[in-house]
Amino acid sequence: MTTKVSTRDGGPATSRPASRRSHGEGPFRYAATGAGIILLGIMAAIAVFLISEAIPALQANKGHFFSELVWDPNGSQVFGIAALAFGTVLSSALALVIATPIAVGVALFISHYAPRRLAGPLGYLIDLLAAVPSVVYGLWGVAFLVPLLKTPSQWLNENLGWFPLFAGEGAIGGKTMIAGSIVLAIMILPIIAAISREVFLQAPKMNEEAALALGATRWEMIRMAVLPFGRPGVISAAMLGLGRAMGETIAVALIFPATFDITFEILTPHANSIAANIANGFGEATPIGRGALIASGLVLFIITLLVNIAARMIINRRKEYARAGA
């Protein structure tokens, strides 16, 4: 019977809580449960209110929301998500491609290469990257990165222009897709690195020793015993990073030139994203314009939600696997 009571009351305590009734118990319990339910309610409310406030604008739309490139809800009332969604996906995919290898390298550096005594402080240094506010990265991107990329962009365009990403005529460099993607990469790097570092540190010591005892070099040991173990964790870390990059707003709002076209030419000043468009377009938006921005935010919410749910499911499955194998 003792077990029964403690199961119902929950909590990690295995023994039975005091039998003496107490007046505060009920209210306290309800408050705690209620707080949890409020959180669930907020998630639901986000979906509900974004939908309900987007509907009037969507009804007033004279174009097709999913295929239209133009975004003009204030004037002609024609607007579509296509170019913005494309920009969001391309910029965050580029950011992911840039950030993931570096982040995995950083994670390995902290977990398996850096001297033990330095690993903690150096890891903190990387965490500090995440503490820099988004708007500061935007400022830095415009003032420092954009001019810095000018010459390399032109060089790439002249010499490797046959490659679709480096193609383009006219203005090369400036406020480009690649500049925004690099800034996004810097912003998601600490997240990917932190999670990867944790899973690399959790790689079983006994398997690492087995590899070393077979005569493996440090890299061979990592390839045999650390990377296979950490792979699901790195994948979900990358997906969390992807979700973050897609929703990142202010930095890219400052960098992207707010064009509305679909192009892979990342070295030309053609770039935009859903989030950047919301930040840049909100100030002058009419009621229909606000509704349209909310509709685009709803799309962003759904995309990031799916990416995050997928990432969390991978992590959770791995947790169970790790627990079962322990």
């Binding site: 959180l39 907020i42 998630m43 409310a45 986000i46 209110f49 974004l50 988004s134 969390l240 979700g243 973050r244 897609m246 929703g247 990142e248 707003t249 989030a275 919301i278 930040a279 921005l293 909310i294 935010g297 962003l300 919410f301 990031t304 939600l305 990416v307 995050n308 749910i309 990432a311 969390r312």
Partner: peptide
């Protein structure tokens, strides 16, 4: 709660 950590800040503002 995990999923909520991934809600973009701009979406929180829009909500």
């Amino acid at each position: 709660v995990d999923v909520m950590t991934g809600v973009p800040s701009v979406v929180a503002g829009l909500f």
